[in-house]
Amino acid sequence: MGKEKKDKTAKKEDTPATPGGGEDDTNTVSYETRVLACNAIAHPLASKKLTKKVLKTVKKAAKTKNVRRGVKEVVKALRKGQKGVVVIAGDISPVDVITHVPIMCEEADVSYIYVPSKEELGNAGSTKRATSCILVVQKEEVDYSDLYTEVLDEVKDLNKKLITTV
């Protein structure tokens, strides 16, 4: 019986990995393809360049534990009055899970932005699972504060444009 287990594990190690499979699967899908999978309510949606900046900011904030992950934690933080930038995944299904988050952000005067992929958002937030939304908490004395303020300014501009067009 012990021999069989060794043979099984040896087989797993010997088999080559399938191309495009595993954790790197999200990297092979283009930005344009991910945008097509977004919900109709995903506005303002970050451009390709802004998406990279936002995810980089989330990644740096997650290292210093300045993020709130998931709908429940984000809503709780917004109710408590925490400020920052809310990043919402645009490809959430069912969409009812996150429809109240932008409304809460507007009431709390917190900027929010949609990114196309929940998987990328989860990876940037240092979690193994896909994440529907993340709040990057506003802190002054952090090493990524320049990047944070740059992202915050761009997101505020997008939110202002959205409000004036509606």
Score class of each variant (00 low, 15 high):
N27R: 13
C105T: 04
V74Y: 07
D91I: 06
A61N: 06
V71P: 00
V67H: 07
A17C: 06
A130F: 04
D143C: 01
E140M: 03
A89Q: 04
T165M: 10
T149V: 05
R69H: 04
S132V: 07
A124C: 08
M104P: 00
P16V: 06
K118G: 12
P44Y: 02
K65Y: 08
S145G: 00
L152D: 10
K60R: 14
N39I: 01
S111V: 13
V67S: 03
N27L: 15
A77I: 05
T26P: 00
S117T: 13
A62N: 09
V71F: 07
S126K: 15
G81Y: 06
K83Y: 00
K83F: 01
K156N: 06
K80F: 07
V110M: 04
G20K: 12
S47V: 09
Y148N: 02
D96M: 12
K3A: 07
A61T: 08
G122H: 09
C133I: 04
M1T: 08
P94I: 08
R34A: 03
A124T: 07
L147R: 05
T28R: 14
L158P: 04
G122N: 06
N27M: 11
K8W: 00
R69I: 15
E106P: 00
K8A: 08
T9L: 14
I103D: 11
N27H: 10
I134V: 15
V101Q: 06
A46I: 09
T165I: 12
Q82Y: 14
G122D: 08
D7H: 01
N66I: 06
R34H: 02
T57Y: 03
D25A: 14
E154Q: 14
I92R: 05
V155D: 02
K59F: 13
V74E: 05
K160L: 14
P19T: 11
I88H: 11
V29I: 15
E120G: 12
N66H: 14
K52P: 01
K80Y: 09
E106V: 14
K161H: 09
K11H: 03
I163E: 11
I41S: 08
K63M: 05
V86K: 12
V151I: 08
A124G: 06
T15R: 12
N159A: 11
N39D: 13
V35W: 02
M1W: 03
V74G: 04
V74T: 13
K128Y: 11
C38E: 02
P19I: 13
K80E: 15
T64P: 01
G84Q: 08
A10V: 07
E23H: 07
C38S: 08
A42T: 09
K76T: 11
K161V: 09
E140H: 03
K65M: 10
K12W: 01
D24L: 12
K80P: 03
D143Y: 10
I103H: 11
